[in-house]
Protein backbone atom coordinates (compact mmCIF):
# COMPACT_ATOMS: atom_id res chain seq x y z
CA UNK A 1 0.00 0.00 0.00
CA UNK A 2 1.40 3.39 -0.95
CA UNK A 3 2.02 6.11 1.61
CA UNK A 4 -0.60 8.35 0.02
CA UNK A 5 -3.28 5.65 -0.06
CA UNK A 6 -6.41 6.41 1.90
CA UNK A 7 -8.26 3.51 3.47
CA UNK A 8 -11.71 3.17 5.00
CA UNK A 9 -11.59 1.62 8.46
CA UNK A 10 -15.02 2.14 9.99
CA UNK A 11 -18.69 2.46 8.98
CA UNK A 12 -21.78 3.76 10.73
CA UNK A 13 -25.47 4.05 9.88
CA UNK A 14 -28.32 5.97 11.48
CA UNK A 15 -31.25 5.02 9.28
CA UNK A 16 -34.57 3.69 10.51
CA UNK A 17 -34.95 0.09 9.38
CA UNK A 18 -31.24 -0.43 8.67
CA UNK A 19 -29.52 -2.88 10.98
CA UNK A 20 -26.06 -1.70 9.99
CA UNK A 21 -23.87 -1.11 6.93
CA UNK A 22 -24.16 -4.70 5.66
CA UNK A 23 -27.97 -4.41 5.47
CA UNK A 24 -27.97 -1.39 3.13
CA UNK A 25 -28.13 -3.57 0.02
CA UNK A 26 -31.19 -5.38 1.32
CA UNK A 27 -33.44 -2.45 2.17
CA UNK A 28 -35.27 -1.41 5.30
CA UNK A 29 -36.90 -3.72 7.78
CA UNK A 30 -40.40 -2.51 8.66
CA UNK A 31 -40.96 -0.98 12.07
CA UNK A 32 -37.38 0.12 12.72
CA UNK A 33 -36.93 2.65 15.50
CA UNK A 34 -35.91 6.22 14.82
CA UNK A 35 -32.13 6.08 15.48
CA UNK A 36 -32.01 9.45 17.25
CA UNK A 37 -33.92 7.99 20.20
CA UNK A 38 -30.56 6.40 21.15
CA UNK A 39 -29.02 9.82 21.84
CA UNK A 40 -28.66 11.05 25.39
CA UNK A 41 -27.11 14.09 26.97
CA UNK A 42 -27.70 17.79 27.55
CA UNK A 43 -28.40 20.30 24.79
CA UNK A 44 -30.23 17.86 22.51
CA UNK A 45 -33.27 20.09 22.43
CA UNK A 46 -31.54 22.74 20.33
CA UNK A 47 -29.84 20.35 17.92
CA UNK A 48 -31.58 20.02 14.57
CA UNK A 49 -32.57 16.64 13.17
CA UNK A 50 -29.64 16.48 10.75
CA UNK A 51 -27.20 16.99 13.62
CA UNK A 52 -28.83 14.32 15.78
CA UNK A 53 -28.77 11.80 12.95
CA UNK A 54 -25.15 12.64 12.13
CA UNK A 55 -24.06 12.25 15.75
CA UNK A 56 -25.52 8.71 15.81
CA UNK A 57 -23.79 7.66 12.59
CA UNK A 58 -20.50 9.27 13.62
CA UNK A 59 -20.39 7.49 16.95
CA UNK A 60 -20.98 4.13 15.29
CA UNK A 61 -18.31 4.69 12.63
CA UNK A 62 -15.68 5.67 15.22
CA UNK A 63 -16.51 2.60 17.30
CA UNK A 64 -16.41 0.37 14.21
CA UNK A 65 -12.95 1.76 13.39
CA UNK A 66 -11.77 0.92 16.90
CA UNK A 67 -11.29 4.57 17.74
CA UNK A 68 -12.05 6.16 21.10
CA UNK A 69 -15.16 8.27 21.46
CA UNK A 70 -13.33 11.41 22.60
CA UNK A 71 -10.07 12.29 20.87
CA UNK A 72 -9.33 15.30 23.05
CA UNK A 73 -9.54 13.50 26.38
CA UNK A 74 -6.15 13.37 28.10
CA UNK A 75 -3.98 10.51 27.01
CA UNK A 76 -4.19 7.51 29.27
CA UNK A 77 -7.64 8.39 30.58
CA UNK A 78 -10.76 6.64 29.49
CA UNK A 79 -11.57 7.78 25.95
CA UNK A 80 -8.18 9.37 25.43
CA UNK A 81 -6.85 9.10 21.90
CA UNK A 82 -3.50 7.70 22.98
CA UNK A 83 -0.23 8.33 21.22
CA UNK A 84 -1.36 7.02 17.82
CA UNK A 85 -4.38 9.24 17.17
CA UNK A 86 -4.06 13.01 17.45
CA UNK A 87 -7.31 15.01 17.55
CA UNK A 88 -5.48 17.89 15.82
CA UNK A 89 -4.91 15.61 12.79
CA UNK A 90 -8.50 14.31 12.75
CA UNK A 91 -10.96 16.20 10.54
CA UNK A 92 -14.62 16.10 9.58
CA UNK A 93 -16.28 16.32 6.17
CA UNK A 94 -20.08 16.51 6.15
CA UNK A 95 -22.28 16.39 3.07
CA UNK A 96 -25.85 17.66 3.27
CA UNK A 97 -28.17 19.70 1.08
CA UNK A 98 -31.26 20.05 3.26
CA UNK A 99 -29.57 19.98 6.70
CA UNK A 100 -30.60 23.32 8.16
CA UNK A 101 -33.48 24.30 5.88
CA UNK A 102 -35.92 23.66 8.77
CA UNK A 103 -34.31 26.21 11.13
CA UNK A 104 -34.15 28.86 8.41
CA UNK A 105 -37.77 28.42 7.30
CA UNK A 106 -39.25 28.14 10.78
CA UNK A 107 -37.27 31.09 12.15
CA UNK A 108 -38.18 33.39 9.28
CA UNK A 109 -41.83 32.36 9.62
CA UNK A 110 -41.68 33.16 13.36
CA UNK A 111 -40.23 36.59 12.59
CA UNK A 112 -42.99 37.25 10.04
CA UNK A 113 -45.63 36.24 12.55
CA UNK A 114 -44.36 37.78 15.76
CA UNK A 115 -41.09 39.65 15.21
CA UNK A 116 -37.53 38.87 16.27
CA UNK A 117 -38.35 38.69 20.00
CA UNK A 118 -40.30 35.47 19.42
CA UNK A 119 -37.21 33.60 18.18
CA UNK A 120 -34.95 31.42 20.34
CA UNK A 121 -31.38 32.73 20.56
CA UNK A 122 -30.16 29.16 21.00
CA UNK A 123 -30.98 28.54 17.34
CA UNK A 124 -28.47 31.06 15.97
CA UNK A 125 -25.71 28.49 15.23
CA UNK A 126 -28.26 26.31 13.40
CA UNK A 127 -28.76 29.00 10.74
CA UNK A 128 -25.24 28.31 9.43
CA UNK A 129 -25.12 25.20 7.26
CA UNK A 130 -21.99 23.87 9.00
CA UNK A 131 -23.73 23.36 12.34
CA UNK A 132 -23.78 19.56 12.03
CA UNK A 133 -20.05 19.30 11.32
CA UNK A 134 -19.24 21.56 14.24
CA UNK A 135 -21.29 19.49 16.71
CA UNK A 136 -19.60 16.31 15.48
CA UNK A 137 -16.19 17.95 16.04
CA UNK A 138 -17.14 19.20 19.50
CA UNK A 139 -18.61 15.87 20.56
CA UNK A 140 -15.55 13.83 19.58
CA UNK A 141 -12.72 16.38 19.94
CA UNK A 142 -11.86 16.45 16.23
CA UNK A 143 -9.79 19.59 15.77
CA UNK A 144 -8.40 19.18 12.26
CA UNK A 145 -9.88 20.73 9.11
CA UNK A 146 -13.68 20.69 9.22
CA UNK A 147 -15.57 21.01 5.93
CA UNK A 148 -19.27 21.03 5.02
CA UNK A 149 -20.17 20.40 1.40
CA UNK A 150 -23.64 21.37 0.22
CA UNK A 151 -23.00 20.48 -3.36
CA UNK A 152 -26.17 19.08 -4.85
CA UNK A 153 -26.57 15.48 -6.10
CA UNK A 154 -22.81 14.72 -6.17
CA UNK A 155 -22.13 16.15 -2.72
CA UNK A 156 -21.56 12.82 -0.90
CA UNK A 157 -18.97 11.52 -3.37
CA UNK A 158 -17.40 14.99 -3.38
CA UNK A 159 -17.11 14.75 0.42
CA UNK A 160 -15.20 11.46 0.21
CA UNK A 161 -12.94 13.08 -2.40
CA UNK A 162 -12.23 16.08 -0.14
CA UNK A 163 -11.47 13.85 2.84
CA UNK A 164 -8.92 12.05 0.69
CA UNK A 165 -7.51 15.36 -0.62
CA UNK A 166 -7.09 16.78 2.90
CA UNK A 167 -5.19 13.63 3.87
CA UNK A 168 -3.11 13.60 0.66
CA UNK A 169 -2.22 17.27 1.17
CA UNK A 170 -0.85 16.41 4.61
CA UNK A 171 -3.44 18.35 6.60
CA UNK A 172 -5.05 15.29 8.20
CA UNK A 173 -4.27 11.68 9.07
CA UNK A 174 -7.90 10.75 9.77
CA UNK A 175 -11.28 12.07 8.64
CA UNK A 176 -14.84 11.29 9.59
CA UNK A 177 -17.07 11.58 6.51
CA UNK A 178 -20.81 11.93 7.05
CA UNK A 179 -23.71 12.09 4.61
CA UNK A 180 -26.96 13.25 6.17
CA UNK A 181 -30.40 14.43 5.07
CA UNK A 182 -33.35 15.06 7.39
CA UNK A 183 -37.02 14.95 6.43
CA UNK A 184 -39.36 17.62 7.78
CA UNK A 185 -42.07 19.88 6.39
CA UNK A 186 -39.77 22.59 4.96
CA UNK A 187 -37.69 19.91 3.22
CA UNK A 188 -40.79 18.21 1.80
CA UNK A 189 -42.00 21.50 0.38
CA UNK A 190 -38.61 22.48 -1.05
CA UNK A 191 -37.75 19.11 -2.57
CA UNK A 192 -41.10 17.45 -3.22
CA UNK A 193 -42.06 13.98 -2.03
CA UNK A 194 -42.50 12.22 -5.35
CA UNK A 195 -40.74 9.11 -6.62
CA UNK A 196 -39.44 6.68 -4.03
CA UNK A 197 -39.87 9.16 -1.16
CA UNK A 198 -37.18 10.90 0.85
CA UNK A 199 -34.25 9.42 2.78
CA UNK A 200 -34.22 10.44 6.43
CA UNK A 201 -30.94 9.44 7.99
CA UNK A 202 -27.17 9.64 8.22
CA UNK A 203 -24.30 7.39 7.21
CA UNK A 204 -20.65 7.74 8.10
CA UNK A 205 -17.24 6.35 7.32
CA UNK A 206 -13.76 6.80 8.78
CA UNK A 207 -11.05 7.51 6.17
CA UNK A 208 -7.39 7.36 7.16
CA UNK A 209 -3.96 7.67 5.63
CA UNK A 210 -2.89 4.05 5.10
CA UNK A 211 0.25 4.42 7.27
CA UNK A 212 -1.75 6.03 10.08
CA UNK A 213 -4.28 3.20 10.00
CA UNK A 214 -1.51 0.59 9.93
CA UNK A 215 0.34 2.28 12.80
CA UNK A 216 -2.61 1.85 15.12
CA UNK A 217 -3.34 -1.66 13.90
CA UNK A 218 -6.64 -0.77 12.24
CA UNK A 219 -8.26 -3.17 9.80
CA UNK A 220 -8.74 -1.56 6.36
CA UNK A 221 -12.10 -2.42 4.81
CA UNK A 222 -11.47 -0.77 1.43
CA UNK A 223 -9.28 1.79 -0.31
CA UNK A 224 -10.53 5.05 -1.80
CA UNK A 225 -9.79 4.83 -5.53
CA UNK A 226 -9.95 7.38 -8.36
CA UNK A 227 -12.59 10.14 -8.37
CA UNK A 228 -13.80 12.45 -11.12
CA UNK A 229 -16.36 15.21 -11.52
CA UNK A 230 -17.53 16.02 -15.02
CA UNK A 231 -20.44 17.59 -16.85
CA UNK A 232 -21.48 14.22 -18.21
CA UNK A 233 -22.12 11.11 -16.06
CA UNK A 234 -20.60 8.69 -18.60
CA UNK A 235 -17.47 10.83 -18.83
CA UNK A 236 -17.07 10.79 -15.05
CA UNK A 237 -17.39 6.98 -14.97
CA UNK A 238 -14.98 6.57 -17.89
CA UNK A 239 -12.44 8.85 -16.18
CA UNK A 240 -12.27 6.81 -12.97
CA UNK A 241 -12.11 3.50 -14.83
CA UNK A 242 -9.43 4.64 -17.31
CA UNK A 243 -6.36 3.86 -15.23
CA UNK A 244 -7.79 1.21 -12.94
CA UNK A 245 -7.55 -2.39 -14.14
CA UNK A 246 -9.82 -3.80 -11.40
CA UNK A 247 -13.32 -4.39 -12.80
CA UNK A 248 -16.08 -3.26 -10.46
CA UNK A 249 -18.32 -6.07 -9.28
CA UNK A 250 -21.18 -3.68 -8.69
CA UNK A 251 -22.28 -0.23 -9.84
CA UNK A 252 -24.09 2.09 -7.46
CA UNK A 253 -25.95 4.29 -9.94
CA UNK A 254 -27.25 7.88 -9.58
CA UNK A 255 -30.66 8.02 -7.99
CA UNK A 256 -33.72 8.03 -10.17
CA UNK A 257 -31.78 6.81 -13.19
CA UNK A 258 -34.43 6.20 -15.82
CA UNK A 259 -32.91 2.95 -17.14
CA UNK A 260 -33.56 1.20 -13.83
CA UNK A 261 -33.36 -2.56 -13.80
CA UNK A 262 -30.58 -4.65 -12.37
CA UNK A 263 -27.96 -4.12 -15.04
CA UNK A 264 -26.08 -0.91 -15.77
CA UNK A 265 -25.12 0.17 -19.30
CA UNK A 266 -21.64 -1.32 -18.94
CA UNK A 267 -23.09 -4.73 -18.14
CA UNK A 268 -22.43 -4.36 -14.42
CA UNK A 269 -24.99 -5.28 -11.79
CA UNK A 270 -26.59 -1.94 -10.93
CA UNK A 271 -27.88 -0.74 -7.60
CA UNK A 272 -30.10 2.32 -7.27
CA UNK A 273 -30.07 2.75 -3.48
CA UNK A 274 -32.83 5.38 -3.69
CA UNK A 275 -35.28 2.62 -4.63
CA UNK A 276 -34.67 1.07 -1.21
CA UNK A 277 -33.97 4.09 1.00
CA UNK A 278 -35.56 7.07 -0.74
CA UNK A 279 -33.96 9.98 -2.53
CA UNK A 280 -30.96 10.79 -0.40
CA UNK A 281 -29.50 13.85 -2.15
CA UNK A 282 -26.34 14.95 -0.31
CA UNK A 283 -26.19 11.68 1.64
CA UNK A 284 -26.22 9.48 -1.50
CA UNK A 285 -22.50 9.31 -2.23
CA UNK A 286 -21.64 8.42 1.36
CA UNK A 287 -24.50 5.89 1.43
CA UNK A 288 -23.04 4.28 -1.70
CA UNK A 289 -19.56 4.20 -0.20
CA UNK A 290 -20.75 2.73 3.11
CA UNK A 291 -22.81 0.05 1.35
CA UNK A 292 -20.00 -0.62 -1.13
CA UNK A 293 -17.29 -0.84 1.50
CA UNK A 294 -19.32 -3.29 3.58
CA UNK A 295 -19.89 -5.41 0.47
CA UNK A 296 -16.21 -5.37 -0.57
CA UNK A 297 -15.10 -6.32 2.93
CA UNK A 298 -17.63 -9.17 3.04
CA UNK A 299 -17.07 -10.63 -0.42
CA UNK A 300 -13.44 -9.85 -1.19
CA UNK A 301 -14.48 -8.41 -4.57
CA UNK A 302 -11.88 -6.22 -6.29
CA UNK A 303 -13.81 -2.98 -6.77
CA UNK A 304 -17.13 -1.16 -6.63
CA UNK A 305 -18.16 1.85 -8.68
CA UNK A 306 -20.22 4.70 -7.22
CA UNK A 307 -21.73 7.48 -9.32
CA UNK A 308 -24.04 10.38 -8.58
CA UNK A 309 -25.57 13.23 -10.55
CA UNK A 310 -27.08 12.71 -13.96
CA UNK A 311 -28.62 14.39 -16.96
CA UNK A 312 -30.20 17.66 -15.91
CA UNK A 313 -27.95 18.08 -12.86
CA UNK A 314 -25.11 20.60 -12.71
CA UNK A 315 -22.50 17.87 -12.70
CA UNK A 316 -21.79 14.18 -12.20
CA UNK A 317 -19.23 12.49 -9.98
CA UNK A 318 -17.83 8.97 -9.96
CA UNK A 319 -15.59 7.20 -7.49
CA UNK A 320 -14.07 3.71 -7.35
CA UNK A 321 -13.77 1.79 -4.12
CA UNK A 322 -10.99 -0.78 -4.21
CA UNK A 323 -10.40 -3.91 -2.16
CA UNK A 324 -8.23 -3.22 0.86
CA UNK A 325 -6.11 -6.28 0.24
CA UNK A 326 -5.20 -5.81 -3.43
CA UNK A 327 -2.09 -3.83 -2.58
CA UNK A 328 -1.33 -5.75 0.59
CA UNK A 329 -3.27 -4.58 3.61
CA UNK A 330 -1.20 -3.23 6.40
CA UNK A 331 1.94 -3.00 4.27
Amino acid sequence: MRARDVVITGLGTAVAGAGGPETLLRGPVAGGDDPVTRLRGPGLRYKDRATRLALCAARDALADAGLPEALDAPEGTEGGGGPLVDGLRFGVVVSTNWGNVDTVCETSATIHRAGYTATSPMLLPNTASNVTASWVAITHGLRGANVTLCNGPTSGLDAVHWARTLIAAGRLDHALVIGVEPVNEPVRRLVGTGGPGLFDGAVSLVAEAAPAAAARGARPLARVGPYARRADPDAAVAAVRADEPAAPARWYVPEGRPAGGDTGPAGLPAHDLSLRWGRSSGALGVLQCVAGTAELARTGQAAALASAGGEGDDGAAALLLLAATAAGAGA
Binding site: L149, N151, G152, D158, D314
Partner: peptide, 22 residues
Amino acid sequence: LHFGTALRERFGADRTYTVANA
Protein backbone atom coordinates in the same frame (compact mmCIF):
# COMPACT_ATOMS: atom_id res chain seq x y z
CA LEU B 1 -29.52 26.21 -3.36
CA HIS B 2 -25.90 25.38 -4.24
CA PHE B 3 -24.03 27.49 -6.77
CA GLY B 4 -22.89 24.79 -9.20
CA THR B 5 -26.09 25.06 -11.23
CA ALA B 6 -25.57 28.74 -12.07
CA LEU B 7 -21.80 28.31 -12.59
CA ARG B 8 -22.44 25.49 -15.07
CA GLU B 9 -24.96 27.59 -17.01
CA ARG B 10 -22.80 30.71 -17.11
CA PHE B 11 -19.24 29.35 -17.41
CA GLY B 12 -19.68 25.67 -18.30
CA ALA B 13 -18.06 24.87 -14.95
CA ASP B 14 -18.32 21.16 -14.13
CA ARG B 15 -15.95 20.78 -11.15
CA THR B 16 -17.77 23.05 -8.71
CA TYR B 17 -17.91 22.80 -4.92
CA THR B 18 -20.17 24.78 -2.62
CA VAL B 19 -18.34 24.81 0.71
CA ALA B 20 -20.68 25.84 3.53
CA ASN B 21 -18.05 26.67 6.12
CA ALA B 22 -19.71 29.55 7.95
